[in-house]
Design a protein around this nucleic acid. Structure first.
Lengths: 222, 222
DNA sequence: GGTGCCGTAGTACCCCGGTACTACCCACCC
DNA sequence: GGGTGGGTAGTACCGGGGTACTACGGCACC
């Protein structure tokens, strides 16, 4: 029997979880909490096997609550649930010590399987998130050869256009690029237009993202 | 209908997979291979949606075969299977470009769910492995965010504003943010204005750069 | 009950950015 | 010579973005 603490600010959502979890013999909802602080308190009091934790809540959010529950060391595993698959949430939750991360659009059996896995010490990640997580993971651990094949969109740029793209990636306005490169703003506009067209970006913002994704722009300190 | 290429050096194992996959309407085994070289050849020839790949095989192993199939760019996704959950295998397979990694002791429905997820571009990791992977991941990604020192400009943002910033970092226009968050464009503009002011950005482009520099935005595939 | 903060929403205004053109110069190559 | 590609420059136009306001309901804190 796996004991579960359900944490969500919406009563209807908690009700749904309770109905689902109490409908199968292997899990039992032993408590509910409507916000982070209550979750931390009830986790310490009830010592559930698994805490089903919503991210967005008024007051203390699910991430901070997760951090505290895990830090308390009561052996409760935290399974984080969210509606939005925002990367920031995922990484924050995992850093906070969550044992799993599922989306609320998961099917009931997926949720039950997740709880089962978390209860025995395994971990689960929603498939839709796993892909990005793996992408990030392999990006962080690239001890192999970087692909020799450069993006064709990048190699279609002339030297000048590449310079312009780098400048866009620094966040410079057309006017700033013009003065730094000693050009007229018209010329800069012409270049920018061609860059956008070649890399398939609809505006300079997408170009900035493209530049970061392809290593033309690098994170700065501070 | 998802087409599958089964790769395993043991005929009995292949038989079992074929029986399972052909027993459900959504998957169909279109080919088999007994070792890596044959797998690469048949993948190029049959162009299956998913390659079910064993790791340990005589001759070219599953990792190298995975690398070549992924490099071929035929859009076949590789789901790696193994009996032994050796970390080395997992990391090597993921670096090789595998979309998933499951253990052979998985239940049939888990395997089918995994194939389903991989076929639509998601990724799957066996729960038993996910735990160690996450541990490794959080060890690799400690960008200051673990509690102590966060950029004061970031922590001055409300939850909502942080979501807005993430959306800006994805390159979404105000209108797109409005529709995805179900808000009026006016409200989005108000939020964006506050975000820009708080993080000291003069326009959303600088906000995108800020988001990347502070890990709120991450490179996307493609 | 008052005071802020937050999230929502609106109006009005201006400017930058992006597009669609055209145009000229230069280097290089048939 | 003529053609091509790259870099430079201009005009004209329009829409989205950003700013400066105001406003209101909900909620927490005192």
């Amino acid at each position: 029997m796996t004991t579960v603490l359900v944490v969500d600010d919406q009563p209807l959502q908690r009700y749904g979880f309770r109905m689902l979890l109490d409908s199968v013999p292997e899990t039992e909802v032993v408590g509910e909490a409507a916000h982070g602080a209550e979750a931390v308190r009830k986790a310490a009091e009830l010592r559930p096997d698994v805490v089903l934790m919503d991210v967005r809540m008024p007051g203390m959010d699910g991430i901070e609550a997760t951090r505290r529950i895990v830090a308390a060391g009561d052996r409760s595993r935290v399974l984080v649930l969210t509606t939005f698959d925002i990367d920031e949430y995922v990484y924050a939750a995992l850093r906070a010590g969550a044992s799993g991360f599922l989306l609320k659009d998961a099917r009931p059996e997926e949720l039950l399987a997740g709880i089962r896995a978390v209860a025995v010490g395994d971990a689960v990640i929603a498939p839709a998130l796993t892909r990005r997580l793996l992408h990030e993971f392999t990006r962080l651990v690239p001890p192999g050869g970087d692909g020799s094949t450069e993006d064709p969109r990048l190699s279609s740029l002339t030297d000048r256009e590449r310079e312009i793209l780098v400048a866009i990636g620094k966040g410079w306005s057309n006017g700033e690029i013009a003065s730094r490169f000693v050009l007229s703003e018209s010329t800069v506009k012409t270049h920018v237009g061609r860059v956008l067209s070649k890399i398939g970006a609809r505006d300079r913002i997408q170009a900035v993202i493209f530049a970061y994704d392809h290593g033309l722009a690098r994170p700065q300190a501070g």
